[in-house]
Design a protein around this nucleic acid. Structure first.
Length: 940
RNA sequence: GCCCGGAUGGCGGAAUUGGCAGACGCGACGGAUUCAAAAUCCGUUGUCCGAAAGGGCGUGUGGGUUCAAGUCCCACUCCGGGCACCA
């Protein structure tokens, strides 16, 4: 074995050496334009901070205890390659990494082992940092943050205060400081909606009124209670099956007093501003669907025989997207949990009650009570499984405001309390669900849209003229909608409106390992925020922080309630020192990740969340509509959770003037996942994939035949390959190169350890073309570059530049391989004029070996800030080109011709080609298509 | 059910605006080198017919537009993902 062959051992030496040098020189220290961290690298250009900026980010990881497998760093390598490329093309690049370290797993681990979550979390961070550092990622480590650092969560709490101390001004369409609302009430320019006089209210009532406007507020509302995790969860954290997103525990709906964030106020802007973003359509669609905006109308139906809570005639307000079908409403349904149900339920079945409506009960009261009990016990999963329509009659009739028809009011669980108003007008003629219910319960069906003659289905939801609809008859749907909404407004029975599926964000968790909510409660139980200058509110040290084992009927118990001496605090809000009760909840996992990019910009300042000049520079605040992080790479699983919450917080901060752009992330890319083969034995158990051997057509493990499967790499499938294995067998540069060569960044791809050798071979060949394997001496020489090679070099430079810019690293590598293959074929030393640009081109991909070769070539400065080669346009065009000649679209011959030959010349050359003459055999040429420099196609 | 993606050799994948399908790599096969092997270097490798020259077929399926279709249009199949009694 030659002493200087590029193998794993040499790679290891090169990599660790350069990593130390980079660290010593602060090579990846990115200078801010002002404030803190204005210092750049000691071995980099002096004008970095004056260059155009580029802010590149990965979705920061949760520091898992199991360490990394080779799938994890895929995105990190991509952003690193791109960041390095951009540094070499004149940008000041901000790229660093942090840890999203609060969350349930550390707490679950703590519960199992007794180890404090902080101890465990910090150990995990240390291990992951080590594994990542070994990859040679060019991160500015001065900017690394962990959401669990007190210095970090001080600002998470500060942002909570900003949100708490703001309200949404519907007229202005944006958030404003709560002090401005208070001033409006004080001065009388705004009066409380219920007509009371501000000046006559008690201080406590005034505070309660103000609190009801805040963007962060406490509300008694149905929440997702997850006893298995001991906490309540946000809608986004509950799966369609009614289980917790994390841990798959059952989730129960129940009313509880909890912190909410008014994200719904931002629905329209969260939707509209998607247009500003360079994200994939699929992610935008997921966010649009989650927000679920639909336009329609509210319609009020009076129930003359019932009263509401205030003794007025009961009014059932419904939401409908099809107000044009109002004349076809033959019954109504309210959700079983609807607050009016008790008022609507009568004591006896009225005349005309059909048997099917009573569920066999003696009175409506009995039927309703039984139905409510049954539905409350059914989980969401049951509800979905059984799509058979059920329900009971309440005994009441409502009046259709457009034709005074009395229609029966039912309760049924196909109407959801959580959407619209929790009540519907049922139009079986134009709605499939209502049709099913009407059929089941023997209710009238009236068509109000004329279906086409050949229509033979049930409910008709297509377009057509209105029928059976009084003054609407003959109108098409859109016209009828407008007309009926105008009419409803006129008679005071409704109005056009918009509804969204998005609910306010449930923000409190009854866990220990999270940011304490910086709130105290006064003697009236009104919330007050802890003054900014007193932040952070640190987590108290607890001996017993584990959530208790709980069941469905128990209440959540915040562990912070056990922190003796912490649960109350003496504060002076200007009215003397008083004792206040602390809020005992912590923030959800998502809080820190909502804003961490701002702290990357300025992780140092103690008086501002981020220095404003640096914030504007890095976020692109000079052009706000196009501002935001320039590239954000991460998994698709955050499509609605993190990415929606984060946009919401950012918009609040934007409204309050704390950030300079309306959106946080300009461009988003979802990297694919690395998948791998897994193997199952005949008992159906997964076996260690690394120990399986290929045997003929099949596979064996310890002599036993096993079957091959395929899935996401991980512990459960026993198919993990760790980066540490790859560092040992090949080196970090080979791992980087292989992962980038496997395919496009956004695609899933199968891991094959046996293919890694291909990437190592490329590095070996490059090395061998520049360095003598036995002596370690350079084999590069200042000889002139042969013309063909020079042209190839410049074509390669041109393609690689374009491909790198497009994040198409796999094709970049293919082009570099081709160039290197030419060098391999070259007899004699490699010309310096080729070696130099080759090393520059590979350096974003394989920075360590590139630095080594770069210094061997005699360079004193780092290749990190060397200029990326530029192609000479004159060398991109050949004098002569070989072009195909087609007859009727099939290639029949080739001619060599001057690259700039005009159409006539090309046509003549093609028709003169002996092979073409032979094939045409005198046939009449009807047409000749000539694409200059590309091809000739003869139609004969 | 609705909404997004996707389908190209044995495998991963490449292919500006419609313009030579299969770049580059893995694997496989053959050769050089070697006592032998590893490593390295050179070559072949979509498929069918053919000794060869050459030709037929070929980008999930069926149709269409075009001088020319992996790329555009229509209909469908399968795979992946999201949402789902949302009024």
């Amino acid at each position: 074995m030659p002493a200087h062959r590029y193998d794993a051992a040499l790679a290891d030496t090169i990599e660790t050496t350069w990593q130390e040098r980079w660290k010593a020189a602060g090579t990846y220290h990115t200078p801010n334009p002002s404030g803190s961290l204005t210092e750049g690298p000691s071995n980099g250009p002096a004008d970095l901070a004056q260059r155009p900026k580029l802010f590149i980010m990965d979705m920061f990881p949760y520091p898992s205890g199991t360490g990394l497998h080779v799938g994890h760093p895929l995105g990190y390598i991509s952003t690193d390659v791109y960041a390095r490329f951009k540094r070499m093309t004149g940008f000041n690049v901000l790229h660093t990494m942090g840890y999203d370290a609060f969350g349930l797993p550390a707490e679950e681990h703590a519960r199992a082992t007794g180890e404090h979550p902080r101890t465990n979390t910090e150990a995990n961070i240390a291990n992951m940092s080590r594994q990542l550092a070994r990859l040679g990622l060019g991160h500015d480590d001065r900017r690394a943050v962990a959401t669990t650092d007190e210095a970090f969560y001080k600002w998470t709490q500060w942002i909570f205060n900003q949100i708490f101390n703001a309200w949404f001004d519907e007229e202005a369409g944006r958030a404003r400081p709560i002090s401005e609302l208070e001033a409006e009430f004080e001065s009388g320019t705004r009066t409380p909606e219920d007509g009371t006089i501000w000046a006559n209210m008690t201080a406590g009532d005034q505070r309660a009124l103000i609190n009801s406007y805040r963007l962060a507020y406490v509300s008694e509302a149905p929440v997702n209670w997850c006893p298995g995790l001991g906490t309540v969860l946000a809608n986004e954290e509950v799966t369609a099956e009614g289980l917790s997103d994390r841990g798959n525990f059952p989730v129960f709906r129940r009313p509880l007093k909890q912190w909410m964030m008014r994200i719904t106020a931002y629905s329209d802007r969260l939707l509209d501003d998607l247009d500003l973003l360079d994200w994939t359509d699929s992610i935008k669609t997921m966010q649009r669907n989650w927000i679920g905006r639909s336009e329609g109308a509210h319609v009020d139906f009076k129930v003359p025989t019932a009263t509401d809570g205030d003794g007025e005639v009961a009014n059932i307000r419904v939401f409908t997207t099809r107000p044009d079908t109002l004349f076809g409403a033959t019954y109504m349904v309210v959700a079983p949990e609807h607050p009016l149900v008790a008022n609507l339920t009568t004591n006896a079945w009225p005349q005309g009650t059909k048997d099917a409506w009573t569920a066999g009960a003696a009175t409506p009261a009995e039927a309703v009570a039984e139905y409510q009990k049954v539905t409350s016990q059914r989980s969401d999963l049951d509800r979905q499984d059984n799509k058979q329509k059920t329900g009971v009659f309440t005994g009441s009739y409502a009046v259709n405001p457009v034709n005074d028809q009395s229609i029966p009011v039912f309760i049924a669980d196909y109407v959801l309390m959580g959407y619209g108003t929790g009540a519907i007008m049922a139009v079986p003629g134009q709605d499939e669900r209502d049709w099913e219910f009407a059929t089941e319960f023997d209710l009238d069906i009236i068509r109000t849209v004329q279906p086409p003659a050949d229509f033979d289905g049930d409910a008709y939801i297509g377009s057509g003229p209105a029928i059976n609809s009084g003054f609407l008859d003959g109108m098409e749907i859109d016209e009828a909608k407008t007309a009926i909404i105008d009419h409803l407004a006129e008679i005071g029975a409704g109005e056009g409106t918009i509804t969204t599926k998005l609910r306010d964000w449930l923000f409190a968790r009854q866990r220990y390992w999270g940011e304490p909510i910086p709130i105290v409660f006064d003697e009236d139980d009104n919330a007050r925020s802890i003054p900014d200058e007193m932040l952070p509110v640190n987590l108290p040290e607890l001996i017993d922080w584990a959530p208790r084992e709980l069941d469905e009927d128990s209440d959540p118990e915040p562990p912070l309630g056990r922190a003796d001496g912490w649960t109350t605090v003496e504060l002076d809000f200007g009215d003397g020192l008083k004792t206040y009760k602390r809020d005992l909840n912590t923030m959800p996992q998502w809080a820190g990740s909502c804003w961490y990019y701002l702290r990357y910009i300025d992780p140092v300042s103690e008086d501002v969340v981020a220095d404003p000049v640096s914030e504007k520079y890095w976020m692109g605040g000079d052009d706000p509509e196009n501002g935001g992080v320039d590239l954000y790479v991460g998994g698709v699983e955050h499509a609605v959770l993190h990415l929606l919450y984060s946009r919401f917080w950012h918009k609040v901060l934007y409204d309050l003037g704390k950030v300079s752009t309306p959106e946080p992330f300009k461009r988003l890319i979802n990297q694919g996942y690395i998948q791998a083969y897994a193997f199952v034995d005949d008992r159906g158990m997964y076996v260690e994939a690394g120990d399986v051997v290929e045997a003929g057509d099949g596979y064996t493990y310890e002599g036993q035949t096993v079957t091959r499967e395929y899935g996401k790499m991980g512990k459960s499938l026993k198919n993990s390959v760790t980066p540490d294995d790859m560092y040992r067998d090949y080196g970090a540069d080979t791992l980087r190169l292989y992962e980038m060569f496997m395919g496009p960044i956004d695609q899933d791809r199968p891991w094959e350890t046996k293919s890694v050798v291909g990437s190592q071979r490329l590095l070996q060949r490059i090395w061998r073309n520049l360095v003598d394997e036995s002596t370690g001496e350079l084999t590069v020489s200042d000889i002139p570059v042969p013309d063909d090679l020079n042209r190839m070099l410049h074509r390669t430079i041109d393609s690689v530049r374009t491909a790198m810019d497009a994040l198409s690293f796999n094709t970049s590598i293919a082009r570099i391989t081709e160039l290197n293959n030419e060098l391999t074929k070259l007899d004699g030393p490699t010309p310096t004029a080729v070696a130099d640009p080759l090393v520059r081109m590979i350096s974003p991909l394989v920075p360590h070996v590139a630095e080594e070769l770069w210094s061997k070539l005699g360079n004193e400065t780092s290749v990190v800030y060397a200029e990326f080669p530029t192609a000479d346009p004159a060398l991109l065009v050949d004098d002569e080109v070989e072009i195909p000649v087609q007859i009727k679209g099939k290639v029949r011959s080739r001619i060599t011709i001057a690259a700039d030959a005009d159409e006539a010349t090309m046509e003549a050359a093609a028709l003169a080609d002996p092979r073409i003459v032979e094939l045409l055999d005198g046939a009449e040429v009807r047409k000749v298509i000539v694409i200059p420099g590309k091809l000739v196609n003869i139609v004969a």
